[in-house]
Design a protein around this nucleic acid. Structure first.
Lengths: 103, 103
DNA sequence: ATCATATATCGAAGAAGATCGATATGTAAA
DNA sequence: TTTACATATCGATCTTCTTCGATATATGAT
């Protein structure tokens, strides 16, 4: 057994952990599943089809953005979100590599 | 935009979601990081090095097992846990495939 | 400048998860 | 069978997350 329980978790794991938390929630999964490949959606569009209040959708979008899963750009009054495919692929790749090498 | 927000999430996503939830917690990450490649650990060993009460460790191990991340076998009085490497790899592979095909 | 719209933030209430000590269950040893 | 030990479960408490409506901020239109 490794004696590393109390030592700090590597920094890049924090980022990975945020992604796991973000993807572990059903509402956030539903939001992500809305996007067509490459598509951008704004908060209003997402809130319109969701079952949640706008402010709640906004909260989930912030969480997804903080995790790096979504990126966003404000254009005029609206904020457009899109999936950061490469970030997701890189996180999954890192985890897969870790599992292959260390389990 | 896909009009699927209210439709049910595919069954295999439930399993994936459990894994994300399991891996999103820092205590559970620390537990997983204890395992040497292929190693088996029992509850007592894990509780001994952790900062949590035995019953709490037991709770987290149950959660990890329910997610498929750990498997376990009772031998005598002890329950031995090990990481299900292939299950983890398969989940990560499915997610990666989905991202590649649908984002 | 005023108004309307889009989004974010705030604060409170409710829900869900984590945590612990105590108790229950199962197993082996004495 | 009694005792000791390993683990799981229970019940209560505490903490964190979720959710909403209200308010604030920013932008564009009138």
């Amino acid at each position: 057994m490794k004696n590393n329980y109390r030592s700090s978790i590597p920094e890049h794991w924090h980022a990975t952990s945020k992604v796991f938390i973000a993807l572990g929630d059903e509402h956030r999964q539903r939001i992500l599943l809305l996007f067509e490949p490459g598509e951008r959606l704004n908060v209003g569009q997402i809130a319109a089809v969701s079952t949640l209040a706008r402010s709640t959708v906004s909260h989930h979008l912030k969480l997804l953005r903080d995790a790096g899963v979504l990126r966003s750009e404000k254009i005029g009054k609206e904020v457009w979100f899109w999936i950061d495919r490469n970030w997701l692929l890189s996180v999954m790749g890192n985890v897969t590599d870790y599992i292959r090498e260390s389990t």
